[in-house]
């Protein structure tokens, strides 16, 4: 319960940043990705600026026993660079390039009153559900094979 308000406020700040930086505009994102066309550097500034506080917080966290509002840090362990990671990232990149939307701007953009954003988010959720079922089936198969 004590983490609800901080999570909400963090979401608000995050969503504000996505709109202020124009990352909710697919044309802006695709113009950055279009290195052979009229290249737009905006996303480079956004990513660079976002990395600064994020990296600083990571350095600060190393000097802390625990987070301010929780009992422990949940930093993903550094596993191997495996096929699911690379195939997943490649599929995500293809979809991102096609539409100009990644999950953050798409979810934040739901409020802007554009039906295409809702269509994209709906398809994205279906994709997540498909992955869940495919994953469950695959785990069952490999369990019975073993």
């Amino acid at each position: 319960m004590r983490n609800l308000l901080p999570a909400l406020i963090v979401g608000v700040i995050f969503g504000a940043g996505l709109v202020l930086s124009d990352m909710v505009n697919p044309a802006r994102v695709q113009a950055f990705l279009d290195v052979a066309g009229a290249w737009d550097p905006t996303m480079m500034f956004v990513m660079g600026a976002a990395l600064l506080p994020s990296a600083l917080a990571y350095l600060v966290h190393r000097r802390m026993q625990q987070p301010l509002l929780a009992d422990q840090f949940f930093i993903p362990r550094n596993g191997p660079i495996d096929r699911p990671l690379l195939i997943g990232a490649a599929l995500f990149g293809i979809g991102w390039g096609m539409a100009g939307f990644c999950p953050g701007p798409a979810v934040a953009g739901l409020v802007l009153g554009i039906w295409q954003v809702w269509l994209f988010v709906a398809a994205m959720l279906v994709g997540m559900i498909l992955h869940r079922f495919a994953n469950a089936r695959f785990s069952k198969m490999s369990a019975s094979a073993a």
């Binding site: 940043g17 124009d22 966290h61 987070p67």
Partner: peptide, 26 residues
């Protein structure tokens, strides 16, 4: 403006890590 927006995004991720201990992955 782009940098200001990026700083907001990064600050959100920073606050999330230091308060809740988690990664702000959308």
């Amino acid at each position: 403006v782009a940098i200001a927006g990026g700083l907001l995004i990064g600050t959100a991720a920073a606050i999330f890590l230091l308060l809740t201990g988690r990664i702000a992955g959308v």
